[in-house]
């Protein structure tokens, strides 16, 4: 069958020289195309700048959501950021699609750091990897119970 709808979304991060990370999310789907780009300052992960474009949308109203991105400037990526994004950029006075792209940019930065830890663990010999995962949990106790891999009874949290 021919597809009725396609969506292609890409999230990427680049480490910049001034202790900042640039995170960009682009979506191209059958009815909508847009990009959001944020710069985050390390080490406190403060959002220092934002840019966005709506390149294709069903209605003119959709373009009005772009300036709303500036409302999260100065916030830090951490607890409460999802709610802040939903309230500032999403909702009936905003655009849930743009809020979603902004959230993806923030999540991309978190995953960028997770990828470093995971790569370090997976570079160990097979027998040492379990200990590597445990070390990751020791550094991030909130991982316990966060998914099937770190659920009660998992060897990855045994003895912690």
């Amino acid at each position: 069958m021919v597809l009725s709808y396609t969506r292609n979304k890409h999230i990427s991060t680049i480490d910049c020289e001034d202790d900042t990370i640039l995170s960009r999310c682009t979506v191209e789907d059958t009815f909508f195309a847009a990009t959001v780009e944020i710069v985050v300052k390390l080490p406190d992960m403060e959002i220092t700048s934002l840019k966005g474009t709506v390149d294709r949308a069903f209605g003119e109203e959709c373009h009005k959501a772009v300036p709303l991105l500036q409302k999260v400037k100065g916030l830090r990526i951490g607890p409460g950021i999802i709610k802040a994004i939903e309230e500032s950029v999403g909702g009936s006075e905003g655009c849930p699609r743009m809020a979603d792209l902004l959230w993806e940019c923030c999540n991309g930065i978190i995953l960028r750091f997770t990828a470093d830890s995971i790569a370090e663990t997976l570079s160990k010999e097979a027998g040492e990897q379990i200990e590597g995962h445990k070390e990751l949990v020791r550094k991030n106790p909130r991982l316990i119970g966060s998914c099937a891999a770190f659920a009660e009874g998992s060897p990855l949290i045994e003895g912690l």
């Binding site: 069958m1 709808y5 969506r7 292609n8 890409h10 999230i11 991060t13 680049i14 991309g108």
Partner: peptide, 24 residues
């Protein structure tokens, strides 16, 4: 050259399997 430090791609396709059924 500046290299990417993280990349994620998501691709979704939706089709009508039948007039009353979407397949994702």
């Amino acid at each position: 050259m500046t290299a990417l430090t993280f990349s994620r791609s998501k691709l979704v396709g939706i089709e009508y399997l039948a007039p009353d059924t979407f397949l994702a």
